[in-house]
């Protein structure tokens, strides 16, 4: 397959970094349910994400110090940040869902940040991952909405303040936008991560091909890397705050 690329040409494969490959079977990609338990490069980085979260939130808070260590301070800041977000956006009665939202936030945040380590694997750039996260939110919010409000949850789609003639039209638009939510929710995260990492790879390919002129692509990589750090945090934040907003619809559908 390498023979497909002519020697001396730009030899850039920005999408290769996203390939899911088994770690212990010579790099074969998993095929359907037969390879359900295969340990892949993605499995490794998902595991590292879990370990990083445990490291920060469990080991970091191990000292239970009144004057926190650096790690404990970061853990407390993260806790306070998301707790306040849930409280402010969703409401005081939503704090019982705080662990769920914290799980989402920490997983996305750490997956995003670990993906910025060179040669690592970007877990959250995979639509399979982000779609599952978004669908989990969508299904839980919808189920919760009906369980808590019964059929009254449907009143969310019926704009009472609009003129009577417009109401059915608006209701259809509301309904469509409701079902588009998980799509935008998941693609926003996955596409942001994928695009950023692909761009980094493209510039890295330029740097490899330009010899001394590589200074410019390297400068660009540095700048884009900074941007990607920002994107990693912001996308985790956006995903979480949207989850809070959707959850608010389930808890208080009437306003």
């Amino acid at each position: 397959m390498a023979g497909k690329y002519v020697e001396g040409e730009f030899n850039i494969h920005p999408m290769d970094q996203f390939k899911v490959e088994g770690l212990f079977n010579g790099g074969a990609t998993p095929q359907g349910f037969a390879d359900l338990f295969m340990i892949t490069n993605q499995t490794l980085w998902i595991a590292l994400t879990v370990l990083a979260i445990i490291g920060l939130m469990v080991l970091g808070s191990r000292g239970r110090a009144n004057v926190p260590t650096r790690m404990q301070s970061v853990a407390e800041l993260t806790y306070g940040f998301i707790y306040k977000m849930v409280e402010d956006v969703t409401g005081k009665d939503a704090v019982k869902y705080f662990p769920h939202i914290m799980t989402l936030f920490l997983f996305i945040l750490f997956a995003n940040l670990l993906a910025l380590i060179p040669t690592s694997f970007s877990v959250t750039s995979h639509i399979a991952v982000t779609a599952v996260l978004a669908l989990m939110v969508f299904v839980s919010v919808t189920v919760l909405g009906f369980v808590l409000n019964g059929v009254g949850f449907l009143s969310m789609f019926w704009p009472k303040d609009a003129p009577a003639a417009l109401r059915p039209v608006l209701a259809i638009i509301e309904l469509i936008s409701y079902f588009v939510r998980p799509v935008s929710h998941s693609i926003r995260l996955g596409a942001n991560l994928m695009a950023g990492h692909a761009v980094l790879k493209v510039f890295a390919g330029f740097a490899g091909a330009l010899g001394l002129g590589a200074v410019f692509p390297i400068f660009a990589i540095t700048a884009i890397y900074g941007l990607e750090v920002l994107v990693a945090v912001i996308q985790a934040y956006v995903f979480t705050i949207l989850t809070c907003v959707y959850l608010k619809d389930a808890l208080h559908p009437h306003h």
């Binding site: 290769d16 899911v20 390879d35 595991a47 879990v50 997983f107 399979a128 599952v132």
Partner: peptide
């Protein structure tokens, strides 16, 4: 590679395992 449906069950399985642990 994101659209390679064959990898989805594997990805989703490990993702769910990770989320449950977290």
């Amino acid at each position: 590679p994101q659209l390679d449906i064959g990898t989805f069950p594997n990805q989703i399985f490990w993702l769910l395992v990770a989320l449950v642990i977290i």
